[in-house]
């Protein structure tokens, strides 16, 4: 039997939990579909579905098979795609995910750098947050990503960790622009515009924890991954944002004293990297250092709290 094809039928039935619907989706009649599922059950020696007149439900064995079947089907599809590209003489492709706020110049440098290194391979970039990249990498929809730490995901391997220390973006009439460096505590009471927690769960929590430690509890947090929207809020004086200097009239950038925020980023891929992942990683690390102001992660400075008698314990 063609096991892979039968696993494909099985997955469609698990999604529909209805043989008639699944058959319609597959463009076949119901009896041959039922027959193929039975052949799969015979092949594996287990029952995969509990069938009653009204409903179809997965058995325990069926549930266990779902992730295995998905992995096998996806890998076979990837293999076929790769081979058919080669057979047609098309350029090979590396599919990479990049964060939304990378910026046009960095993106262009990344593409140009990769083209120089591997003119025979097409770089297909998709803008994605870290959470989406992790899912896409694990499901095989991406070959490599640029993730923002902290990330907790099994099954991924990481390239070099790069770090940058964001400053704060303020409206030019904000009184804090009088300072050459701004302390996180100076921002107290202001609203913050930040990337969405859904997109960057680790970095979002990490950033807010650092803010609280530094005396900045935002009065309100507006989430967006649209740079233009964030700058609009900053420009109007509605909120402050963290990031690199922005070349926007009316927006002023100031460094944060003591670099209390550290945004870390690294290339990541599935445990066995695809063929062009190493090329992409090499180019990405170089471009992020040269064009995005990132540096190799050194020893992160431990946040310090200097004791003061007037505010000490029990003072």
């Amino acid at each position: 039997m063609d096991l892979v094809r039968h696993l494909g039928y099985f997955l469609v039935v698990t999604e529909e939990l209805h043989f008639g619907n699944a058959a319609a989706r597959l463009g076949m009649a119901q009896p041959p579909l039922s027959q193929r599922i039975r052949r799969l059950e015979e092949e594996l020696g287990v029952r995969l579905f509990e069938r009653s007149s009204r409903r179809v439900a997965l058995t325990e064995a069926g549930r266990l098979l779902v992730p295995e079947a998905r992995e096998i089907v996806a890998r076979v599809e990837r293999m076929r795609d790769l081979m058919s590209d080669l057979a047609r003489g098309d350029a090979a492709v590396v599919r990479a995910g990049v964060p939304a706020d990378l910026g046009a110049a960095v993106l262009a440098a990344l593409i140009a750098g990769f083209r120089d290194r591997r003119p025979d391979v097409r770089l297909s970039l998709t803008e994605m947050g870290t959470a989406a990249q992790v899912a896409a990498l694990l499901e095989g929809r991406l070959d490599v990503g640029l993730l923002r730490h902290p990330v907790a995901a099994n099954g991924l391997a990481y390239g070099p960790v790069l770090v940058r220390h964001p400053g704060v973006l303020l409206a030019e009439d904000d009184e804090l622009t009088a300072w050459a460096t701004v302390h996180l505590g100076d921002l107290a009471g202001r609203d913050l515009v930040l990337f969405p927690r859904d997109a960057e769960p680790g970095l979002y929590d990490d950033t807010l924890a650092s803010c609280r430690r530094g005396g900045f509890v935002p009065a309100d947090i507006v989430c967006t991954d649209r740079v233009e929207f964030a700058l609009g809020l900053v420009l109007s004086g509605t909120a402050v944002a963290f990031g690199a200097p922005a070349e926007v009239p009316g927006v002023v950038w100031r460094p944060l004293a003591g670099t209390p925020l550290a945004w870390r980023c690294s290339p990541a891929w599935r445990t066995e990297p695809g063929p062009y992942v190493r090329d992409f990683t090499t180019v990405a690390v170089q471009v992020l250092k040269e064009s995005a102001g990132m540096v190799d992660e050194g020893v992160p400075p431990a946040p310090r709290v200097t004791p003061r008698p007037a505010t000490g314990l029990l003072a």
């Binding site: 302390h183 996180l184 505590g185 430690r213 530094g214 005396g215 004293a257 003591g258 209390p260 946040p303 310090r304 709290v305 200097t306 004791p307 003061r308 008698p309 007037a310 505010t311 003072a315």
Partner: peptide, 21 residues
């Protein structure tokens, strides 16, 4: 000099945990 208790003059300009006055 770091053990001086008064918070109202010089130290009041630097209400930041990571700055020593």
């Amino acid at each position: 000099m770091a053990l001086q208790v008064w918070p109202h003059r010089l130290a009041s300009g630097f209400p930041f945990d990571d700055v020593a006055v």
